[in-house]
Amino acid sequence: MNSLHDTDVNVGDQLAPLVLPLSRSLIVATALASRDYQDVHHDPTLAQQKGSQDIFMNILTTNGLIGRYITDWAGPDSIIKNVSIRLGVPNYAGDTMTITGTVTSKQDGQIVVGVVGANSMGNHVTGTVTLVLGATGQGGTK
């Protein structure tokens, strides 16, 4: 896994999209791995009784997937400083979410990537991730 360095990144760079089929197993496995036991994330019957069409992804997982998306691109020498997200439509089991990202700023050693996770109903999440890339010559695993 290579790491990006400051000099590799420019404002306007687009990250490769991540297409993520939202299987029921993924919704449940990620909810439990994030210790979120709310029934709407694993019990379809109760989720429907509460007005949802199916179980849906929990917020910790949305954060986790965005973190993964960023380090998949930036590599192990990146350090995430901030993840700010705005939540939209739910990620229901059976749908597919595609995460895309664009470098929106590069200043004082900090990179900001604008991210969007969209499913068939619209934007599930929009937000920004602020990160620092391993500086050249500081022992990064380029």
């Binding site: 790491s3 210790r35 910790l60 954060n63 986790g64 965005i66 993964r68 192990p76 990064g140």
Partner: peptide, 15 residues
């Protein structure tokens, strides 16, 4: 790596 040892995924904070 830049971390110098094992770290936890930052977005796992709340978990």
């Amino acid at each position: 790596s830049v971390h110098g040892g094992l770290v936890s995924p930052p977005t796992m904070l709340q978990a």
